[in-house]
């Protein structure tokens, strides 16, 4: 079948601002949106820029806005979206070229929340023990692939880009609720800050945007509640 695809193009070397380009592509309904982008790039306009690697929703490279919603281009099939298919870069981060945005501030926010296990106690020669129940408490947030779909769907982030954003809070949650970690207090102090978890207005955009099915808003609520336990 023929599919009409509109892509928001922007080349910093030639364009003052972005503009829509239309492509008519021969496509199979079972193909991924990413396959459509490849068709444009490989057989029509080689200069189209987008990130991708794994092509099956596990690396987090290709979050973009498709028909107004954040998703991974490799995780959605042509038959699941209405046509014409409108594809734009994720919002709230500076566009580098076409569908590629600058991720620096996103990763900086991630790094702010101490996204690593802190435990200075001598662990011994074998693994630390952890019960399946304790392991389950942070299972959901271990799944994050740092794709930025959540953060860039958040209306608070769009207006205040100093907000650490959902993804950073998800990654703090991952450690705050890990029974092996000892730095919850420091992390929660960071998230109590003006640009921390309390900026969240529970719009739930992040939860619907997350391609890994993480309950992002719930994780933020868990973290907020936990900050109330420290003083």
């Amino acid at each position: 079948m023929d599919v009409k695809v509109n892509i928001l193009r922007y080349n910093p070397e030639t364009d003052r601002k972005g503009h829509w380009e239309e492509y008519i592509l021969e496509a199979d309904p079972d193909e991924r949106i990413l396959d459509l982008l490849h068709k444009v790039k490989w057989f029509d306009d080689g200069s189209l820029a987008f990130r991708r690697s794994c092509a099956h929703g596990v690396c987090g490279s290709d979050a973009m806005v498709v028909n107004g919603e954040n998703m991974l281009a490799c995780q959605v099939l042509v038959k699941e979206v209405s046509t014409p298919i409108k594809i734009e870069p994720i919002r709230g981060l500076p566009v580098v070229k076409d569908l590629v945005v600058n991720m620096d501030s996103f990763f900086d926010s991630y790094k702010k929340v101490m996204p690593y296990l802190v435990n200075d106690a001598e662990p011994g020669e074998r693994e630390r023990l952890q019960s399946p129940e304790d392991r389950d408490r942070f299972e959901d947030t271990t799944k994050c692939i740092l794709c930025a779909a959540c953060t860039t769907s958040c209306p608070v982030f769009w207006t205040a880009d100093t907000y650490v954003g959902p993804a950073a809070i998800v990654n703090a949650h991952r450690f705050v609720f890990d029974s092996r970690d000892n730095a919850s207090k420091q992390r929660l102090e960071i998230l109590k800050d003006v640009d921390g978890a309390f900026r969240c207005r529970t719009a739930f955009n992040c939860t619907s945007a997350c391609p890994r099915g993480i309950q992002v808003t719930k994780a933020i609520e868990d973290v907020k509640r936990q900050t109330l336990t420290i003083n």
Partner: peptide
């Protein structure tokens, strides 16, 4: 064991 010490969230048996 080293990866576990660095925080790797392995699945666990009942005995931890």
């Amino acid at each position: 064991v080293e990866l576990e010490h660095w925080g790797l969230p392995f699945s666990r048996l009942e005995n931890g």
